[in-house]
Design a protein around this nucleic acid. Structure first.
Lengths: 119, 119
DNA sequence: CAGAATCCATTCGGATACTG
DNA sequence: CAGTATCCGAATGGATTCTG
């Protein structure tokens, strides 16, 4: 079983991995995939919480990313008026489906980094 | 069961989705994820084949991406001398593991685009 | 065929300062 | 707290040309 080919249901038409439209470019922008997975892990999440988890993202970049993800209907933005202001981001159904598929990718990346970069 | 939370084994520490090092930036560069999935679907693949599947990638960009992926030990590059020259790219074990996790993501993106953008 | 090299427009993302 | 607005340097990716 060590030499069995991949067991997942990959389509045999490789062309399905091309021509994927603007969503791939969105996912390729900085922190996009991380944001989706973070919100999936924490549920409704506030701006500062995401920012502090990412650690090194500037407010302008994170703000842009959240806008992009909301515009793509992957995130919702809910504003609770009051002092102090409070805004929560959550996943749409589409966003959750995507985040669930991204999870294994980021987790694998994290394990690989952790296993290699032990300096 | 429609209201059950995500069933995959997401770690409950959202911080694991941050600090992922350079691999995420590589995946965020243009065509990187597609290339991995294409090669996973087709097996050892030649430069022009990848190029023609992608359709709109310039040779310089694709070349850079293949270099990056090989440098990250996700792809191998095998050169068969002769006329005409022939080079094949294939996945390393790490590359295959990653590609298998990326497959569902790209497939979902493809279905979503196809289902929505029918104009 | 498979690229390397060069040049360049565009974009992206970070820093900073300011608003409600 | 949760951003927006502005500015700017770095990096990216495309077009083109040339090579083995």
């Amino acid at each position: 079983m060590a030499n069995e080919p991949a067991q997942f249901d990959a389509p045999d038409d490789p062309a399905c991995y091309c021509r994927l439209g603007g969503v791939m470019e969105l996912l390729s922008s900085k922190y996009a995939m991380q944001v989706l997975c973070i919100v999936n892990a924490t549920g409704p999440t506030r701006f500062r919480e995401i920012e502090s988890l990412l650690g090194d993202a500037s407010t302008s970049t994170l703000s842009a990313r959240l806008d992009d993800l909301a515009a793509a209907d992957l995130l919702t933005r809910t504003q609770y008026d009051g002092i102090p202001p409070r805004v929560e981001y959550d996943l749409t159904d589409d966003g959750r489906e995507l985040a669930e598929r991204l999870g294994p990718v980021l987790e694998w990346v994290g394990e690989r980094e952790g296993a290699v970069g032990e300096s």
